[in-house]
């Protein structure tokens, strides 16, 4: 059958694929934005002094990391209507993706902050820098610098994970492939095209991540 691989039909379906690609991009983009917010807040709570807040952040992070995203997605999809919270499929998907990635981002940010030697803060204090200046010129440049490759890695995972929202019938890239596969009985054309688009996104993000890492090494050398 693979000798009948039909580029013509892929061409016909290209508008659908591009719509799906666009949906995948913006769903992932919005999700990573909220995930960053959630992650930074959760990390702040976890490193805070309040025992209660610390506990809550810990439970959130551990329970997300120990359960699959698909179960979380179904949890919200089937569970929210019973609480009379009516979100549409896209919103439910974004909620699940953001909460899921937020837990991982919290761990990434924590690792970044912990990685800065305490001597740095002490030296900055001795230089007479105040709290904001220390954050702005000493801690954050180093913490963010080391976490950005990991955050981009998490973004790659998020883009891949966003394929799961196709299972609650959101039209995105994977769903576009499924539609083509079922309408034309052409699973090979449909899913290989989808895979190619995902690889394209992956290589762009990987290139960015490598570029940033090289820049870091360069900056450290100077």
């Amino acid at each position: 059958m693979l000798e009948h691989f039909s580029f013509r039909v892929i061409g016909q379906y290209m508008p659908l694929f591009l719509r799906g690609l666009w949906a995948t991009c913006w769903i992932s983009g919005i999700s990573i934005f909220f995930a960053l917010l959630i992650g930074i807040i959760a990390c702040g709570l976890r490193l805070s002094k309040g025992r209660f807040l610390k506990k809550i952040a810990g439970i959130y992070i551990e329970s997300i990391r120990s359960t699959p995203l698909l179960a979380q997605l179904y949890f919200f999809y089937f569970g929210l209507p019973t609480l009379h919270v009516n979100l549409n499929e896209v919103q439910t998907g974004i909620l699940a993706l953001a909460l899921n990635s937020g837990a991982y981002i919290a761990e990434i940010v924590r690792a970044g902050i912990v990685s800065i030697p305490s001597g740095q803060v002490e030296a900055a204090t001795a230089y007479g820098l105040n709290y904001l200046q220390r954050m702005r010129y000493v801690i954050l440049p180093q913490a963010l610098g080391v976490t950005i490759p990991a955050l981009l890695g998490q973004f790659i995972v998020l883009v891949k994970d966003s394929s799961l929202v196709s299972l609650i019938s959101v039209l995105e890239l994977t769903r576009a492939g499924q539609l083509m596969a079922s309408e034309r009985f052409m699973p090979a054309e449909g899913f290989f095209t989808v895979a190619a688009f995902y690889l394209l996104i992956y290589y762009i993000l990987k290139y960015l991540s490598n570029w940033w890492q090289n820049r870091l090494i360069y900056m450290e050398g100077h």
Binding site: I156, K160, S163, A181, P187, F191, Y198, L199, Y202, K206
Partner: peptide, 18 residues
């Protein structure tokens, strides 16, 4: 890279349907 870039969902569709 392929496995890192392509979602597992797509991957399993490829194996099961293709």
């Amino acid at each position: 890279d392929y496995m890192r870039g392509v979602p597992f969902l797509v991957h399993i569709f490829i194996i099961y349907f293709i």
